[in-house]
Design a protein around this nucleic acid. Sequence first.
DNA 1: ACGCTTCAATCGAACGTTTGTTATAAAAAA
DNA 2: TTTTTTATAACAAACGTTCGATTGAAGCGT
Lengths: 199, 199
Amino acid sequence: MAKNDCRTKLMEIGTRLFAERGLHGVSIRELSQEAGASISMISYYFGGKEGLYSAVLQEQFACFDQIEEIRKQGAEPLDVIEGYIRWTLQRHRNNPYLLRFYTSELTNPTLWFHTIVQPAIEKIIRILIDVLDDGIRRQQFRKELHTGNAALALAGMANYFFLSTLATENLVSHSAENDEELIRQYAAIFTQGILASPP
Amino acid sequence: MAKNDCRTKLMEIGTRLFAERGLHGVSIRELSQEAGASISMISYYFGGKEGLYSAVLQEQFACFDQIEEIRKQGAEPLDVIEGYIRWTLQRHRNNPYLLRFYTSELTNPTLWFHTIVQPAIEKIIRILIDVLDDGIRRQQFRKELHTGNAALALAGMANYFFLSTLATENLVSHSAENDEELIRQYAAIFTQGILASPP
DNA sequence: ACGCTTCAATCGAACGTTTGTTATAAAAAA
DNA sequence: TTTTTTATAACAAACGTTCGATTGAAGCGT
């Protein structure tokens, strides 16, 4: 095998298996076998099974570093809200495993929750709260709005759509074709729900 | 020990431990020790570790059987929506473990997902879709509304508020004191977001 | 009230696997 | 030569399950 192919392959298979069955649901024997590498490479590169898991976790949540991008350009609160929904949907389309780690860590936190997961989620929620505060300052949104609760509501709408896929695919289409329409609908529901001066 | 105390205790501890660490994260030795019972009682009563897990799962999702109650009485769509939010919040307050199984099964489904979890979630989403369709028929809600997507949005708002607790408690209060206000806010955001004839 | 049987409930030890890790030596690649 | 990878074996620890023994209450004929 070529140089460092082994490390890459272990990360790849580790991502899939840990996402599918969690840290305790996968053995390093099965993992290394599927990766076509030998068992000892896990200790060699990552210092053990947990080291590999933490490396995978770090890689998965790295995409939250670029979240600030949804704020630039126009920076109109309404645009940012739609931008967040689009960003969230595309993020899950590009990497269907992330949500597994996301919710798994929220409900069964491991050692790395506070260093990797919590900062990432806090960062994005903080941005949403900022944007909503901004919208209130511009008198676009209702001034009684509790921006913390509203931010969680927005994040919940976008994430739960994917989270529920396995249980609701018989009832609602989760195909990527409808994503643009979904973005418009969710943006409409949320922004109309918080607009100032309702009739 | 009194008759069947053992069984009850095993269910009780099993619920807590499986919720906290998942099926694979708990050993029957630790479980039985915490329950003050001997290891063999798990096989005796439940046929094994997985049998205990499935019994716990069944018990956890039993509360979805009474979901129809939010439809009776007034049956005004707007009331049912608020009723759903309240029911969801109270459900999580009364049993903080349910959400762990709920999301754990959605992202790492076990053998019993299709027999226990999926039917429960489908049932409730179906009711929400029904109610939204009803509201459109009464011309209360926008007739362009995609009721499937909207139902998931509502469920997402209510559930994600709890799901995110561990990561967002520094930013947003999750105290039960504010529940009634939260219900009003979420009901307002959602219903105003789907109302007919926006200004 | 008595002795006897029955049976569900419980226990702790033992079994065979599988776990994650480590050590070793050799092969392959750079 | 140095780094990377392989294969293999060994290890103690932990795993889920099973087995035989023990307990104690209930049922029953006398």
